[in-house]
Nucleic acid binder design. Structure first.
Lengths: 189, 189
DNA sequence: ACCTGAACACCGTTCAAGT
DNA sequence: ACCTGAACACCGTTCAAGT
């Protein structure tokens, strides 16, 4: 195999990038169900070209989210080094919820991505879950969570916050998040 | 206008009923986006017959939910007579959340039905909202809710509970509902 | 190696023709 | 008065033909 075989043709590379940029815009304004035909048209390529680069909607969505995920996991690294377990967990919940609220429909996909191995977001979901588990364990060790609160409870909270954010308003999502966090904290003084 | 004009033809009536029954089944198993063509086929009528009786998906969904809504509002009447404001509110939240969890996609429609006057569920949503407002007011009067908690907060909670129920599991929804209610209750002894 | 766009499948919706 | 199903519009997806 020659090295040239690994280097993509310049126009192909440009098409893939343009498709990615327009997909991001379309997902943001129309949700994860945005028309692929419309994305191809906006990018100035035929629909077949879109499918050539991204064999299905999931792949395209995964590619669009790649940078976003990197930023999220960078933040996870920092929070895992954070000295205050309660603060770290609250920030992590906020970060994931904000991420999942980027496009309408994303909350559903992320909520199901852990169990769905076919999902392009599966590995990202698993990684998020592991961070959540660690931060929940530490918060418990510091006595900051009501007995019985699980990582699954926290994951569910991140999903509903994101969903509410796209469905009603970020402000309403923020309010419910605050109330539920209060409930997770358990008995106070 | 003769009285006969108001009495529908027997076969028309039967078709409408059959369509309704199959729509209920389809919505339950495939969510609110179930194929209308499939519903017509299952009911043994042509697709045009479905449109003749129910001009669009919303109308059909509204018809399917009619009895269910009646039962819900009957429950509302009872809870408005309930002597314990905290208990009444908690039961009402549970009842609406369970209702909205009947079909995948219904939580979204109900969450937006109050603002969307075109929705066939608009009047039902308005009626739900009024009950929620009354019960929240009474719970506040009894000092059972944290200061600042609004009817909108409670409505949002009903929506997210229903969404979580269809998206993850009824058990996970029940858990988050309990935590959030704890947070809404505010400072305890 | 990649791009194009016609072709196919599928579904929502309409409506002219039937009974 | 109601039913039928062909017809149209639209979109996701595939693939043979081009460059």
């Amino acid at each position: 195999v020659s090295t040239a075989a690994r280097r993509p043709r310049a126009d192909a590379r440009r098409n893939a990038d343009r498709l990615l940029a327009h997909a991001e815009t379309a997902f943001r304004s129309q949700g994860t169900g945005a028309s692929l035909e419309g994305i191809a048209r906006a990018a100035g390529v035929a629909i077949g070209t879109l499918y050539g680069h991204y064999p299905n909607r999931r792949t395209l969505l995964g590619a669009v989210l790649r940078e976003r995920h990197q930023a999220l996991f960078h933040q996870a690294e920092e929070l895992l080094d954070h000295p205050e377990p309660g603060d770290a967990l609250a920030r992590w919940i906020g970060a994931v919820a904000e991420h999942a609220a980027a496009y309408t429909g994303l909350a559903e996909i992320i909520a199901q991505g852990v169990d769905d191995e076919a999902s392009e977001l599966h590995s990202a979901c698993v990684r998020m879950e592991r961070t959540t588990e660690t931060l929940v364990r530490r918060a418990h060790a510091a006595g900051l969570l009501r007995a019985g609160v699980t990582a699954a409870d926290v994951t569910a909270l991140m999903s509903t916050t994101a969903w509410l954010s796209t469905q009603i308003s970020p402000e309403q999502a923020r309010r419910q998040l605050a109330f539920t966090l209060e409930g997770l904290r358990g008995d106070r003084v």
